[in-house]
């Protein structure tokens, strides 16, 4: 297949009866990047992924790859791991993977080669002759990932690929995703393990009630308007008044957290540091950036302005 392109999801809307599962959902997964998709259960992650795969039809909106709307030929080049895991329980691992590879258009010979490669990489080579139902859940999960990778997809869409994996398998899975992205494949996956998403992803999308409330690079998302610093030195109560725009948030022993709300001069951090040093020796001074977990909590619990938005064009 040709060069990799970006996966673009634009203004997807989906309604199930009374429930609006997706509201104008848009995101882009650039070629060679890993995009994490987070949100609470029922937020619409799986719905969006199923629409990308064409197993579900959107009420409106479009999914494009490399600028063109996705058709069946492109879908056959997607590697998919559904939320509800599914393989033929009574079919052998090897036969099953070869069958799925062939359904994606591989020749018998390259299907067999691919099956051998991926069972080797994922550590299930010695289980090729076993029926799926005889495997442990962790190994079934590995076979499921092999099923998503066996046809060397141009796009990867994985719904909670890390759930139920042991730490070693998580490392293997992370390595495989990174390798695929480095080969130019756009990788989209959903997860509830936010530390993992933070460590692995180039971009993150946070979805709430069917709407994308935050989307961007991790660094970009962590950069907030209200900035905080941690100061290890003289307690802030003694010197904070020297910087009019800053307030003290907390102070415990020698560690204080100070905050500047809203827009402020870039040099405000220097002002704070000078004020602290004037009061005594400073051992540590650093910008406090919210972790993805904090960001997520903040977005999911508040941010009423976005969720009330009704911009659906039916």
């Amino acid at each position: 297949m040709g060069a990799m392109g970006a996966l673009t999801i634009e203004s997807l809307n989906k309604t199930y009866g009374q429930v609006r599962a997706l509201r104008d959902l848009s995101m882009e997964v650039p070629a060679g990047e890993i995009v994490g998709f987070v949100g609470s259960n029922g937020a619409g992650k799986s719905t969006a992924m199923r629409i990308v795969l064409g197993v579900l039809e959107a009420d409106s909106g479009e999914v494009r790859w490399d600028g063109r709307p996705i058709d069946l030929a492109v879908r056959q080049r997607i590697g998919y791991m559904p939320e509800e895991r599914g393989l033929y329980p009574r079919m052998k691992v090897g036969e099953q993977l070869v069958y799925l590879a062939r359904l994606h258009g591989l020749t018998p010979a390259s299907a067999t080669t691919a099956m051998e490669h991926w069972t080797e990489v994922l550590g299930i080579a010695e289980r090729r002759g076993d029926e799926i139902l005889k495997l442990s859940l962790g190994n079934q999960q590995r076979v499921q990932l092999a099923a998503a990778l066996v046809h060397s997809p141009d796009i990867l869409v994985l719904d909670e690929p890390f759930s139920g994996l042991d730490p070693v398998a998580v490392d293997v899975m992370s390595g495989v995703l990174r390798e695929q992205a480095d080969a130019g494949v756009p990788v989209l996956f959903s997860s509830h393990q936010l530390e993992l998403v933070e460590a692995l992803c180039d971009r993150v999308g946070i979805i709430k009630s069917g709407s994308m409330v935050k989307f961007g690079g991790i660094e970009e998302l962590r950069r907030t308007d209200d900035r905080r610093w941690v100061v290890d030195g003289p307690p802030a109560a003694g010197w904070i008044t020297a910087v009019p725009s800053a307030q003290m948030v907390s102070s415990q022993g020698t560690r204080s957290v100070v905050e500047v709300r809203g827009q402020a001069a870039d040099a405000v951090d220097q002002e704070i540091l000078r004020a602290a040093m004037a009061a005594g020796p400073v051992h540590e001074f650093g910008l406090l950036r919210p972790s993805l977990t904090e960001l997520y909590r903040h977005v999911v619990t508040t941010d009423a302005t976005v969720t009330d938005r009704e911009t659906v064009s039916a």
């Binding site: 994606h104 591989l106 020749t107 691919a114 060397s152």
Partner: peptide, 11 residues
């Protein structure tokens, strides 16, 4: 690295 297999569009 994974092998790039021969892929044909399936009729």
């Amino acid at each position: 690295m994974s092998p790039r297999p021969t892929v044909v569009e399936i009729s």
